[in-house]
């Protein structure tokens, strides 16, 4: 990122934060309760309101400082050729990977942790552009290692796969406990 892109990013962030803090300030009466006769400091509204006021003060001060910086940069005739919306498009870059992540989350209760993890690792390795066979072996081994470490060894609570129920009793129990 060059300095003008960075400044554009800062401007976009400042705008978003100013909008967020304004929205939260506006929402205080609807989203918190006020009990008559109770001391102000004991009100459920008191603490969130303090936080939002602090957030707003900093958000607007930050916005002002970015605005001053932008004005100085324009005066210096620096080349500002990116827009706030253009920068925000970059911020949405991870959305594709969020999609893959959520697909993985949805797949686990159906396929089981082991199978879903192996598929996740292999497909993601392919998506990342790796084509060497060795990379796929490493990828599958990493997935297996993670399952063995967390589910089999540390017994972290992860839903078992729906298809495990189709297995004979002993096999189903084994799969539910370990994978």
């Amino acid at each position: 990122m060059n300095s003008s892109e960075y400044l554009t990013g800062e401007k976009a962030f400042a705008i978003l934060m100013a909008m967020l803090s304004s929205f939260l300030l506006y929402s205080i009466p609807q989203e918190t309760q006020w009990f008559s006769g109770m001391a102000v400091s004991k009100q459920p509204r008191f603490w969130p309101a303090m936080c939002i006021i602090g957030l707003s003060l900093f958000a607007f001060s930050y916005g002002f400082s970015v605005w001053r910086k932008a004005a100085a940069m324009t005066n210096n005739n620096d080349d500002i050729n990116t827009t706030e919306l253009g920068e925000m498009k970059h911020w949405l870059g991870p959305i594709e990977f969020v999609g893959y992540f959520l697909l993985y989350v949805v797949a686990v209760p159906w396929l089981g942790y082991l199978l879903a993890t192996l598929i996740y690792f292999l497909l993601m390795t392919w998506r990342m552009g790796y084509r060497k066979k060795s990379m796929f072996w490493i990828s599958a081994a990493t997935g297996l290692l993670i399952v063995l470490l967390f589910k089999t060894l540390l017994q972290v609570k992860i839903t078992s796969g729906a298809w495990y129920e189709l297995l004979p009793d002993a096999g189903a129990t084994f799969m539910i406990i370990n994978f």
Binding site: F97, Y100, F101, Y104, V105, V108, T117, Y120, F121, M124, T125, M128, G129, Y130, M135, I138, S139, T142, G143, I146, F150, V156, I158
Partner: peptide, 13 residues
């Protein structure tokens, strides 16, 4: 990038 795949997989756990 492979490290990114692994971190995302581990974040799930």
């Amino acid at each position: 990038r492979f490290l990114g795949v692994a971190i995302m997989g581990l974040s799930f756990v």
